[in-house]
């Protein structure tokens, strides 16, 4: 067995086990820790697919920033009551689990039938496809320049929005009026 095949299965197992951990942990802090493991697994798959820049951004943005934000909110809210998923053993719980599973089956079958096997062979023969950060940056700042500027505007709006939400009465900022 090739090492890349083994690497794929190890990463897939890591991702799926920790993803199930996210949705089944009773305590929100364990969910956040499982989310970090999932993000690292996905970053490993990105590296395996020849996208080192996206893998690094995944670790920095998700594992570094987003999950820290989640952990901080969990600490801030001081949750005492634990709650487990699927407390009522009713028919609706079964349906809620069955619908996504059915979706996976249908779409995997559709992909198996529709995706051309030739693209797969071509990529295997050329022996890997590595995108350098330089090429990515040139594309980002030429073809996608408008989207890049629009995203920066979005981030400005989000900063203002998050601060104004957190400062409003009833938010975390309780001070003299």
């Amino acid at each position: 067995m090739e090492s890349s095949v083994l690497l794929f299965y190890v990463l897939a197992a890591l991702i799926l086990i920790s993803a199930v951990g996210v949705i089944s942990a009773a305590n929100a802090i364990y969910s956040a820790l499982c989310l970090v493991t999932t993000m690292f697994g996905v970053a490993g798959v990105f590296l395996n697919l020849g996208a080192p820049f996206i893998g690094a951004v995944q670790v920095i943005v998700y594992a570094g920033a987003v999950v820290v934000l989640f952990v901080m909110i969990v600490m801030l809210l001081d949750l005492k009551k634990k709650e487990r998923p699927l407390q009522s053993r009713s028919v609706s719980s079964g349906i809620k689990v069955a619908i996504p599973a059915l979706l996976v089956g249908i779409v995997v079958a559709a992909a198996q039938m529709s995706i051309d096997f030739a693209t797969q062979e071509g990529a295997a023969q050329s022996g890997g496809f590595l995108v350098s950060t330089k090429e990515l940056a040139q594309l980002l700042l030429s073809k996608y320049l408008f989207a890049f500027e629009a995203i920066s505007l979005l981030i400005l709006v989000v900063i203002v929005g998050a601060i104004s939400l957190a400062r409003s009465p009833g938010g975390t900022h309780v001070g003299p009026q």
Binding site: I73, K96, V108, T119, A123
Partner: peptide, 28 residues
Amino acid sequence: GIHHYIALSLILFAVGMMGVMIRTNVLI
């Protein structure tokens, strides 16, 4: 091949979808 990665991505999506439906904690 490409099918393996698509299957992994789909299962991950389905796990997230289940999480949205079965959990009542808004953080999760």
